[in-house]
């Protein structure tokens, strides 16, 4: 009986868990083939607790970054889209905007991961629509990079959550870190942003079971493949 209930629960959760958000059927390029610029991957590995202490989390090594980058390069090559790394950014204004937008993406991605993917956390006002955005302010990035879209990848070690949660309780009024702990050991998400409007046209988050050990090429490859599965053509 109990086993049955457990199976039913798993089935229910699986049915509830939505797949990646796809806002556009096909990508549109200004000049033929759509160009996607890859933003620097946002990786974080530790967190300060409410007590001001730092907790080391996990055993990432400096192999993780090259491994992730290699996996992304492999993914890029397998697609017929014009993928491109972030090029040299001339003026300080655009550079500042890029940095600001990467930081904002961290906050937006967390909000989406919670309110679209966590059971029971849906926002009623957003039940019928997905209208998260990084703002039309991103347009200059598209112009400077001659790109139509930007891909943001965010990979955080979720051990950080302990600290975040404590912080969230202490600062519950500001509620910036919250109960998004159930995301597993790795907290990862990726967004494809239309650089003309700032809209997030595609979004996916990493399931706990899907992530690999980022220190190994295989693990990083599996993680990126899981994260970018169903990436629009």
């Amino acid at each position: 009986m109990r086993a049955l209930a457990a199976i039913a629960l798993v089935a229910l959760l699986a049915a509830c868990a939505p797949g990646p958000h796809r806002g556009v059927p096909v990508l549109q390029g200004q000049a033929g083939v759509p160009v996607v610029v890859l933003m620097p991957v946002d990786v974080e590995l530790y967190e300060i607790t409410a007590g001001g202490m730092v907790e080391p989390k996990g055993e990432w090594t400096d192999r993780a970054r090259p491994a992730v980058e290699t996996a992304l390069a492999r993914f890029k090559n397998s697609r017929g889209i014009g993928f491109r790394n972030l090029g040299g950014v001339g003026d300080t204004e655009t550079r500042d905007l890029i940095l600001r937008t990467i930081r904002l993406h961290g906050a937006v991605g967390q909000a989406i991961a919670i309110h679209r993917f966590s059971p029971g956390q849906t926002l009623p006002s957003k039940r019928e629509r997905f209208d998260w955005s990084l703002g039309a302010e991103v347009a200059p990035i598209g112009r400077a990079q001659r790109a139509d879209y930007a891909l943001f990848v965010h990979l955080h070690d979720s051990y950080s959550s302990g600290g975040r949660v404590a912080m969230a309780v202490a600062a519950s009024v500001l509620t910036l870190g919250r109960a998004y702990i159930q995301m597993g050991r790795q907290e990862g998400f990726a967004s494809l942003v239309d650089l003309r409007t700032g809209e997030i046209v595609w979004f996916n988050r990493l399931l706990e079971s899907a992530g690999g050990d980022l220190r190994t090429p295989e693990g990083a490859g599996r993680t990126i493949a899981a994260l970018l599965q169903d990436f629009p053509r």
Partner: peptide, 9 residues
Amino acid sequence: TADGFELNA
């Protein structure tokens, strides 16, 4: 919140 507490509270 409208879009999530990270985004407006």
